[in-house]
Design a protein around this nucleic acid. Structure first.
Lengths: 267, 267
DNA sequence: TCCTTGTTTTCCATATCGTGGAAAACTCTT
DNA sequence: AAGAGTTTTCCACGATATGGAAAACAAGGA
């Protein structure tokens, strides 16, 4: 992550730089020192220090004097929390995610589309040793994600094509979907079976199964998935787990007063 | 909330302004229009627009073209999520919060101290109609909160006094603790009974009961509370619920490998 | 349909404001 | 106590953010 926020600012320099620092604070597992952040971001130490101080005055960063390290501040948390609070399906989803995790013993996820990417909104982790690949807040190109594909599959074909025009086919592994016809093949399957599959298209060795959740106005608003190491999710297990994912998604749909629209018909 | 981020910037102007806009986006329940944000923040429309564009380039804000409103972006969520991910007790706490909510039918909360304030980290809402007063990300002066007082009570008296010197006694209702001697009286009670009480000290009509959770190094790291309308949490109920809160806190302490230190002795 | 009104977005000259070097104040080590 | 590696403050320079005004939209209203 050496040059995370590249050099393209695209706006007010000072603000871009400050936000870049904030991202670094969030991405780092530990507190960061001024001078380290400065070299990482390619900024002068004094500039870095001034920007951090400004972030701190607004509560977005926090300086720990005893260790002289910088951390993400409470205000960043507050603003971030509002991102999920405004999506009223997140809170009720937890019940179903938990049950899904308990039934399958694997990680259950909730995500939605945001600007061509699937953003993980919430997750209930497997008790197995594996760490989560994509923690809450994580982003993956929609076409590299089971949840993303499940949601795309609810769109009319024309909109899917337009989507792909705009966002292309970023790939994360050699098995990621690449090209519209390959995607549409999958979409057809997804619509037929009611759930989407991701076989190492996001990360090596990882398989995901996802189903969409509908909102009151008949649009899919989010998706539920189970993700697991492929070795733990093989053959006939797949179908069993998929049915449970579909069930959870249906129940959440009902809970939030959603109307399960028909899947778009192949045109 | 007319002039939220006052005029004292205390750092890089452009950055303070941008963060102020971000806070407004987070605080608003709906998307905000450029011109409204501009007047709220007292900025020129063109400046506001440029700052928002910069926020968008980094993913911290998002513009909905169909409605031409601005929202909090995914990156803000990602950074905010890291605030809780780094506190390893949040995830395991959910189990106990949920049970507490089910046992008491009231809202269960998890919070910790951050710069003199109690920050609500997580919460499992009551199924009653009442909305939560302080959603995740919310901040209250420590002395106006049951969780805050429960945590302060684990500190040596000298540090409590120092804390009060630094932060004073901001009050949120007429019943909020005001003055060191009043606080120390309460601290004594808290240490004796093992839990803290907040009787309308944070919000009119609201009562909270809280107990601290210890970490592996013998310091209290967070607190668990139950908050409810006073009318639903009266008389003998209080003691019953308080015992459940204490139990939940003890269990979480154990779960995270915490060592329950002795409460500081009155000096 | 073509104005009218209320937006959002772009442009640009001005001087404000952020910048980074260098020096000063700290903090730990040796 | 002195030294190395920090963090923090200061300052003159000029790059850069600023806000007015105008241009591009969008949404009614006649």
């Amino acid at each position: 992550m050496t040059d995370m926020a590249s050099e393209k600012t695209g706006g007010v320099q000072a603000v871009s730089r400050a936000l870049g620092l904030l991202k670094r604070l969030g991405a780092a597992t530990e507190g960061q020192r001024v001078s380290d952040l400065a070299v990482q971001a390619g900024l002068a130490v004094s500039t870095t220090h001034r920007l951090l101080t400004t972030l701190e005055h607004s509560g977005f960063a926090h300086f720990e004097p005893t260790t002289s390290k910088w951390h993400v501040g409470h205000e960043a948390f507050a603003v971030g929390a509002s991102y999920v609070q405004k999506r009223s399906y997140v809170a009720p989803a937890l019940t179903y995610l938990r049950r899904l995790r308990d039934e399958t013993r694997e990680t259950a996820n909730l995500g939605h589309l945001d600007d061509g990417h699937l953003v993980t909104l919430s997750q209930v982790e497997s008790r197995e040793i594996m760490r989560a690949i994509s923690p809450p807040g994580g982003r993956v190109p929609a076409t590299c994600s089971a949840m993303g594909k499940a949601l795309l599959a609810t769109w009319p074909d024309a909109q899917i094509a337009e989507f792909c025009d705009r966002h292309g086919f970023p790939t994360m592994t050699p098995r990621s979907v690449d090209g519209l016809s390959a995607l549409m093949d999958q979409i057809t399957h997804i619509r037929a079976q009611g759930y989407a599959v991701d076989n190492e298209e996001h990360a090596r060795g990882l398989r995901c199964l996802a189903a969409p959740v509908w909102g009151p106005d008949g649009d899919a608003v989010c998706a539920i998935s189970v993700s697991a190491m492929m070795m733990r999710l093989t053959g006939e297990m797949t179908e069993v787990v998929a049915r449970r994912v579909v069930t959870a998604a249906s129940e959440l749909t009902e809970k939030i007063g959603g109307k399960r629209a028909e899947w778009p018909l192949p045109t």
